[in-house]
Design a protein around this nucleic acid. Structure first.
Length: 566
RNA sequence: GCCCCCGUAGCUCAGCAGGAUAGAGCGGCGGUUUCCUAAACCGUAGGCCACACGUUCGAGUCGUGUCGGGGGCACCA
């Protein structure tokens, strides 16, 4: 039985007991929740349902709890003791046999087979980074890249089939500016910056592109007659740069989706669909009376704060419109779940897009299938001071520089994932560089390396973990420290599934830290390799292996190495 | 102007669908290595969970308001 199944089973037994006791008093939606207890004296699992039932069945919670336990107690599986405590908590103690069997399964099959198969057979599309090809990725993109990748692999771990997609704008004004910035650098022999348009791109990487372009095409190109060459070359170089930045984090996208694929067909169609919708007798799309091509979307009729321009005077689209078309396209691909990961600067836009989609596709459809995660920005801290960043001016810290300064991609990824997405984050470079106990990555990796060391020593001593589960194995592990560790291991699949469900990867770093602490404590109190007690050594070795596989499995969700030596 | 996030130990932050005595790391103080990695472990001090009101058997958690801090938003994307 998996930890998830045990809890579900327990809840079912409790629910059916409650219904058989109080029948029609109990509402249809009633559920008996079982959760972990944080205090050992209250057992391993706990149910608070008696308190919630007090008012419905007009009895005191304690006597309700006692009644439930009386009729249900012989139907609990994997439970060795049930007790009513305090005001009416029902507390369960997990049986030694069950705990040892979970550890055994972890040791031999790893974490994944024990996870709730929440995503089985379903497909998800995760869109992230989606930075325009105008230069190297920055610190902000780095946080998003790490979040998106980790959410993707977290979903995969619980059984989803995940596609990672990168949407980029290759058709807008920014690409013109980029091309022009390149043209200026290309034309002036020293790559004189003064001529670069003020709102253009000033980064030094454009100098390298310029000399690359001169090497390839000579010096005869001009911005006036070779616009497409400049823009095309810049885009190609920028995408190269971005892919290589992403590879530093071990990220590969399944698809790069270009905005130009949607223009004009899909966008025109989306505008038509929107203009057919009327709210309070007025079409959602309207134009000014001056005869220009400009079109507005009447967001105020949809409960949004402002109407927005969707087509400019010159016939080009503002950001929102292709994005709406892109989302319609994504919905048509029939994913069960679409996740958008955006920075805080996209909040307003993203809500507009979501609102428009709700009117086009139905509110329920959108809220069921689209999940938008907005993450707050990162501030870099170096020598105790915050660093200012801005992309267009060229004063920014790139993802590449960040990883180099932090010391490794592992540290960078892990530190980003110690905060929840929606919290502002100070990334402390000085802390990242410290190879000491202050740095949480090393704490976890050290636990893994320690276990690997034990396994090496054990194998030299000829001790191997048992290859099948038996009641004797559980008896060998009935010590206090063994039990505590098994209890911790047992809770991990449930917590990982919950983290995946909530799409909150920062919980994984929490779980890892707890697991590392649990193991270090065990290690301190219990000697594993002992040639005078081969049976007990083998059993304890199995526990070590279970820990090791959990740690490496969780680290691999984060894309972080699990070293065998440090 | 509109919107978002945060306010929990000296510092950086967890706290999973409201539950039993509020947690971790770092820093402080005091301990633990004839033994599988001391990058570890154990103990200890340190909290009106910003404030007020409300919802209820019960609030760090939910609601409203106040105060304080951070950030975002334009026919850029």
């Amino acid at each position: 039985m998996t930890p998830a199944a045990l809890r579900t089973e327990l809840e079912k037994v409790l629910e059916s007991s409650v219904r058989s006791l109080w029948g029609e008093l109990i509402p249809d939606e009633f559920q008996a929740g079982v959760s972990g207890s944080d205090n050992l004296e209250f057992g391993d699992l706990s149910c608070q349902t008696a308190m919630k039932l007090a008012r419905i069945v007009r009895d005191n919670p304690r006597s309700i709890a006692v009644k439930i336990v009386e009729i249900a107690s012989d139907r609990f599986e994997g439970i060795s003791a049930v007790k009513v405590d305090g005001p009416g908590f029902i507390n369960f103690t997990l049986s030694d046999d069950y705990l040892a069997s979970v550890a055994f399964r972890l040791a031999f099959g790893g974490l994944q087979p024990l996870l709730l198969d929440a995503g089985r057979g379903r497909e998800a599309l995760v869109e992230f980074v989606s930075s325009n090809p105008t230069g190297p990725l920055t610190v902000g993109h780095c946080r998003q890249a790490v979040l998106g990748e980790t959410i993707s692999s977290l979903l995969e771990t619980v059984g989803w089939k995940v596609s990672r997609e990168y949407y980029f704008n290759d058709a807008g004004r920014q690409m013109d500016l980029l091309g022009e910035s390149l043209a200026v650098r290309y034309t002036s022999a020293q790559g004189d910056e003064s001529a670069v348009p003020e709102s253009g791109y000033h980064g030094n990487y454009i100098l390298e592109w310029a000399s690359g372009l001169r090497a390839l095409k000579g010096t005869g190109l001009t911005w006036e007659s070779d616009r497409d060459t400049f823009i095309g070359f810049a885009e190609e170089k920028a995408m190269e740069m971005i892919r290589s930045d992403l590879s530093l984090l071990g990220i590969e996208f399944d698809r790069y989706f270009a905005e130009s694929e949607l223009i004009p067909g899909a966008v025109t169609e989306a505008i038509e669909r929107l203009s057919r919708i009327t709210v309070d007798g007025k079409s959602l799309v309207y134009s000014d009376d001056d005869g220009s091509e400009k079109l507005w979307l009447r967001f105020t009729s949809l409960g949004r704060p402002k109407d927005r321009v969707i087509v400019r005077d010159n016939g080009t689209y503002t950001y929102r419109m292709p994005d709406i078309a892109y989302h319609i396209e994504k919905f048509s691909r029939n994913y069960d779940l679409m996740v958008d990961i955006f920075g805080a600067d996209h909040l307003d836009t993203s809500r507009d897009v979501t609102t428009a989609l709700e009117y086009l596709l139905g509110t329920e459809e959108v809220s069921k299938r689209l999940k938008v995660i907005i993450h707050q920005f990162v501030t870099l801290v170096r020598d105790g001071r915050k660093i200012k960043m801005s992309t267009r001016s060229g004063e920014f810290v790139t993802l590449r520089e960040l990883i180099r300064e932090a010391g490794s991609a592992d540290v960078t990824k892990y530190l980003f994932l110690t905060r929840k997405a929606e919290a502002h984050m100070d990334f402390d470079l000085d802390l990242a560089r410290k190879q000491s106990s202050e740095n949480p990555v090393y704490y976890v990796q050290y636990a893994h390396a320690r276990i690997a060391g034990i396994l090496r020593t054990a194998s030299e001593a000829g001790i191997v973990p048992p290859d099948e589960f038996s009641g004797e194995l559980a008896e060998l592990l009935n010590g206090k420290h063994e039990r505590e560790l098994m209890r911790l291991l047992e809770s991990i699949p449930v917590e990982v599934a919950a983290a995946a469900d909530a799409m909150e990867p920062h919980r994984i770093t929490e779980i890892l830290a707890n697991l590392a602490t649990g193991f270090h404590r065990f290690y301190q109190h219990v000697r594993v390799v002992d040639c005078d007690n081969m049976d007990i050594s083998a059993a304890r070795l199995m526990l070590c292996e279970a820990c090791r596989r959990c740690i490496s499995g969780l680290l691999s969700i984060l894309g972080v190495n699990a070293p065998d030596k440090m």
